[in-house]
Structure formats: C-alpha cells, structure tokens
Amino acid sequence: MKQEETTPEQRPPARLPLWANPRIGLVVLLIALIALFTTLRPAFLNTQLTLVPMQADISVYAVVGLSQLAVLSLGHMNMAVGRMAAMSAFASGLLHDRLDAPLLVALAGGLAVGALLGALAGLVISRTGVNSFVVTLALDFALIGLVSLLYATFTDGVAFNGLPAGMSALRTDTFADYCAGDVCGPEIPLLAPIALIAVLGVGLLFRWSRVGREVLMTGANAKAAELSGIPVRWRVVQAHALSGLLAGLAGFLLSANNGSFSAGVGDGFLLPSFLAPVLGGTLLVGGAVSVLGTVLGTAITQVIYKGLNLLQFQVDELKLYIGLVLLAALSLDRLRHVLAERRGVPA
C-alpha cells in the first residue's frame, strides 16, 4: 500500500503527447458531434432555430458548471447550487418588484444573496469540519422550502410579474440587432458576454491570483497549506462564497432566458453543475480545476441536447446519451492516465 518514493527524475523531460491532452480530446469530440448532427439535420446550423438558443443555454450552464467548479477546487461539493440560484433570483425579483430597482441593482442584490448563502455554507463547513456534501445538502433542503414560501408570500404564485428594464432584451436580442451604420454585430445573444466575463474571471482567479491559487493549495493538501501560512478556513469560506455568487449569476442568466424570476429557477442545475466540470477533466479530489474544460463540457452536453432534440428524440431520453458520453469520457480519461503512466509521463 505504502509505495516508497518513485524517482523518474533521471528520465529526460518527456513532453506530453498530443493525444494525451484531455482538452484536445474534448474539442475533437465537440467538432465531431457538430459534424454528425449537421450531416443528419442540416438545420442544426440554422442560426435562429438552433445556434442562438444554444449559445444562450451554453452561457447559462457554463456558469452553473463554474459554480460547482469553485468548490470542486477544494475537493468539496455544493449540493445547493440550484437553490442558491433560486434564492438569488428571488432577491433580484423582489428588489425590482418592491423597490423598483434597475437591472444592475437587482443583479447586484441577487449576487450578494448568492454569495452570502455560499459563505454561510463555507463558514459552517470550515468551523465544524462536517463534510461539505452533508452541509450543502441540508442547506438545499432548507432552501427548497424557503424559496417556495417566499414566492408564495411575496408574489401571487410562483413568479414575479415583470422584469427590470433591459432584461427582456437580454433574452430576445443578439448583437446582430445592434448596428452602427451598416455594420451589425454577430448573431450572439447578449447573455454570452456576461458568461464570458465569468469564465475569464474564474480562469484568471485560479490561474494567476493569489487567493485562487491558495484555494487550490488548500484543496491539494489542507494540512500542508495551513503549515505554509495559508489562512485555510478563510479560503474555504471564500471558495464557497464564490460558488454561491456564480450560482446566483446562473440564476439571473436563466431568469433572463426564461423571461421571469420564478421559483423553478435552478431546479435542473445540480446534475449539469457536476457534468460539465467532470467531463472537462476536473476531479473531485480538489487541487486542480479546468475552467476551459468546464466550458467545453457544457458545450458538448448542450450540443448533444440540441442535436438529439432536432432528431426528435424525447427530452428525457437524451439523458441516456449524455450519461453514456460521460461514462465513455471518464473511462477514456482513465485509460489515458494508465497509458501515460506507463510511458512515464505525468498526465
């Protein structure tokens, strides 16, 4: 069991072979899927019918994936992503409905609520040392109830009527609707750049920022992190707060996409939140994340959804194929690891 230290240090620094880069595999898979669906149904490349809504969906679910990724970096889980999103959307809706807050204020309020909920989970986890799965699961239960109670109390049903000015534009418009003279923007929904900012922000955080790196180090080895002077508990709280914040953003994007702040926001977030990062190569052990992989993982799942949808598969039946792709990708990844290890290359 206790394997003594291995020393491949004398070996020449082997470069990672191209096939061993997991991200490239995902890109190839993505392209292959798009090619496949386009051959079967040329309508797959129809801008209005497929591409624009698909971009909007990818935008929403990429942020959902990032929300989970934020705590996977620690080796933790957030079972309450969906409900944090719902609470955040509720806060935005309430701010608009009661205080007539403009779009940005409503958004900021929603994000703050998401971040606070995340921080609360992180605080409980870091103070008590209880498994993050249990804490966030319990929080999820509590919030499921709270969300519907709040909607029942403050609205006449399950949704707020009306949206802040500008929010419906987020849903309906693409950049092609905005022209300067004869030059119009590309057919990209307005939601996309918001998600892109989140992707870049999280990427920047984990790649270059001190806080992000210290979160990763905490995930890699909490004991060593503490003994290296990293404020471990505070980093745990921060990572969970980030997760809540991103869940809130995803809730906002979905509300924009749906056209209302409703109690159902976030109901379907849990599964995709794990699917995307895991498909993208982020493990549950903590210490390493792949932001780009998460985006690719989201794109692949959404392409499969849309493609099979066009092929007139039933919505629920699609899950079968998503699951198979996930299983295949994971097994291949495992195989890749084994092969790479045999060659003495750190995979």
């Binding site: 599964l271 629920d316 079968l320 998503i322 996930l326």
Partner: peptide, 15 residues
C-alpha cells in the same frame, strides 16, 4: 461520479 453517470443513463432508460 460513476453513479452520477449511471443515474443520467438510467434516467434516460426509465423514460
């Protein structure tokens, strides 16, 4: 993760 994947698959099969 394994049961996450099989859950998705079975979800489809169930339907």
């Amino acid at each position: 993760i394994v049961t996450l994947a099989t859950m998705t698959i079975i979800d489809g099969l169930r339907y």
